[in-house]
């Protein structure tokens, strides 16, 4: 499978996961669960950023601009 396509799909999955955890944090009644969801949301956001950085570098190198 094309790596760029794979990365784009992975970014979309990370974004969805981030949204889901954000909703979880908003819906959580107790502070500990809210804190857990917020932490997970931050992690997914970091993953998404890492993937985006790598994807843009790959696109620049491969000339897919």
């Amino acid at each position: 499978m094309d790596v760029i396509r794979l990365m784009e799909e992975a970014i979309e999955e990370e974004r969805r996961a981030h949204e889901k955890y954000k909703q979880g944090a908003e819906a959580a009644a107790d502070p500990e669960t809210r804190s857990l969801f917020e932490q997970l949301a931050r992690m997914e956001e970091n993953h998404e950023r890492m993937l985006r950085d790598r994807l843009s570098a790959l696109k620049l190198i491969k000339g897919d601009r």
């Binding site: 950085d53 790598r54 843009s56 570098a57 790959l58 620049l60 190198i61």
Partner: peptide
């Protein structure tokens, strides 16, 4: 910006 990104990669 391009060089920073590609150099990091």
């Amino acid at each position: 910006k391009k060089l920073v990104r590609t150099a990091s990669y």
